[in-house]
């Protein structure tokens, strides 16, 4: 049952992506990208990654769509016809895609228990209730055991805000 749901969702994702690539209306592209994020959030939900699904739905489908629309408000809403040949971008995209596929081939098979990630999991599940008293293992790992990583992520968010403010904020009216 789960694999059927995943197959349907992935097919819809592919269909939405083809539509995003083919449309010339940027407004439609933004709405389709938002739909893409909602489908992606559903995929995460089926894979039991509820935290990631919530983030994807709130940030990917909600806030990024609003930011894209704000950017569209400042420009035109239809894509201009390309001025140069698409060969160079095509080559860059092709090489990047090939490199990503090459990288994916090195990942462990999906759902295999032997990977380092899954070897550490039972250890955390055994330790978390006694050591932290926090029932949600994800929160305990992110907040406590991997506190440094989460601090780093917060600094990344902070740096993102700084960069956008430095670029977009008008100085002194």
């Amino acid at each position: 049952m789960e694999s059927i749901v995943i197959l349907v969702l992935l097919t819809l994702l592919a269909a939405v992506l083809v539509a995003v690539v083919r449309t010339r209306s940027l407004f439609a592209a933004v709405v389709l990208l938002s739909a893409f994020s909602f489908l992606m959030a559903s995929v995460m939900l089926v894979l039991d990654a509820v935290d990631v699904a919530m983030t994807e739905a709130a940030v990917g489908a909600g806030i990024s769509a609003v930011l894209f629309l704000s950017a569209l408000h400042l420009t035109k809403t239809t894509e201009a016809p390309p001025r140069r040949s698409a060969l160079l971008p095509l080559a860059v995209a092709g090489i990047t895609g090939a490199a990503l596929l090459f990288g994916v081939s090195d990942l462990p098979p999906f759902g295999i228990a032997e990977t380092p990630m899954h070897r550490a999991g039972p250890d955390y599940i055994a330790r978390v209730p006694a050591e932290t008293g926090i029932p949600n293992v994800v929160t305990a790992v992110l907040g406590s055991y991997r506190g440094f990583d989460t601090l780093g992520e917060t600094v990344v968010v902070f740096a993102g805000a700084l960069a956008v403010l430095a670029l977009l904020k008008r100085r002194g009216g």
Partner: peptide, 12 residues
């Protein structure tokens, strides 16, 4: 951060 980015975009 989300609000700062939104304000920066919308304010322009």
């Amino acid at each position: 951060t989300m609000l700062a980015i939104f304000y920066a975009f919308a304010g322009r």
